[in-house]
Amino acid sequence: MAVLIDLVLLSMLAITALRVIFLKDLFAVVMLFGIYSLLSALIFVNLDAVDVAFTEAAVGAGISTVLMLSTLALTGRTEKENKRSSVLPLLVVIATGAALIYGTLDMPPFGAADNPIHQHVAPRYIEESPKEVGLPNLVTSVLASYRGFDTFGETVVVFSAMVGVLSLLGAARRRENSDDAAVIVAGFKGHKVLRVVAKLIIPLIILFALYVQFHGDFGPGGGFQAGVIAAAAFILYALVFSLSHAMQVVSPKFLQLLASLGVLLYASVGIYSMLKGGHFLDYNKLAADPLVGQHFGILIIELGVGIAVFAVMLSIFYAFAHQVERSTIK
């Protein structure tokens, strides 16, 4: 049954991708891309990657769709007719694709338990991590403990992406008398249903984000997903009740501080474990009992990741939305 679901979903994914190529209306392209992300999230669930599915659903169908739509608001929604011949790109793609298909024939068969990938480190993670880290969710153990360096690097990359976006677009600033602008931009202001529904679900989304954050050790979830979900709640608020209202709740300056705080919180765990006589990010040294130390370490660095991702996502959204607002006033 799982195989059948896999076949159907993957075919739907392929059809969606094909449609994206030929559509000229970029608004439809972005919407299709949201569907594409949601379909891939379903496939990830079917392939046992629940944590990944969680992230893809929140990021692909949520944040990146919003960012692409705000870019379209600034650059126009239709693609111009392409006069260039598409024969050469097509030839290149077919040749590369054929070579890759030939390459896949050497791959081990899908799903076999004795594939090389399952022989090296995975057995150790599955067998030893209950004794070494003691968390039921192996993905969290590997992410936060075994590969803590890697995750730290990725948090820094996300942080530097925020620095990049803010230096390209300029940081959004809160204005005092921006009621006129707010009315223009918040097209949803007259929609009573949207406003009431948004008011009802925003607290629930934030509550869910906190659950995902702190339950990530035991079930699917963790800092990355929680940060994105919490940012989505504030983005919804900004879309329905106008940007300036959202900025009154969480100001852009505060978000920049928060993003640095998240990264520093992560780094400080590493420094602290060094002061305790261990290596960088060696959680065993955080408490007398190594397992308790692991729990503390993972809890704090996941919190750092959650705070950093939340702040980065929301300030990137602020930067884009601020540009859209400026261009509508002019």
Partner: peptide, 21 residues
């Protein structure tokens, strides 16, 4: 295998951040 899940989970978030750039 949990390892590919870890790699891809973080790659998705990094991916949206670089897309934003």
């Amino acid at each position: 295998n949990p390892l590919p899940h870890v790699l891809i989970l973080t790659a998705i978030v990094v991916g949206v951040a670089t897309t934003a750039v």
